[in-house]
Amino acid sequence: MPRAIVLDRRDNVATLIDSGQPGQACTLQGEASGELVLLQVVPFGHKVCVRATPAGGDILKYGQVIGKAAKPLAVGEHAHIHNVESARGRGDKAEG
């Protein structure tokens, strides 16, 4: 069973330390416990959503904001550049 580490109780994503397949159960370690079911392929080192998050909601890892949800995220969903956006160094979004 793939393992995922939750680094802070406030986090809504966990980092997989094995690779995971859709439908596979994943064990949570670290600052959370229990299991969730992966909705997609989640490669080694990638993140999975552990708490449903609306579009625009903060994504938290290490208990800190690492970006915003670009789309709603469901528990078990692969959280990466396709649905999480950085808020920093974004000259493409600069006004004027």
Binding site: L16, H46, I66, G67, H80, S86, G91
Partner: peptide, 27 residues
């Protein structure tokens, strides 16, 4: 970076950072 009108994503984090699971510069 912002004054150049550029989006630093893809430069930092780099493409190999992203493949390795890093999603944003904050992370």
């Amino acid at each position: 970076a912002v004054s150049r009108g550029m989006d630093i994503r893809g430069t930092n984090p780099t493409q190999d950072n992203i493949r390795g699971g890093l999603t944003t510069i904050e992370e």
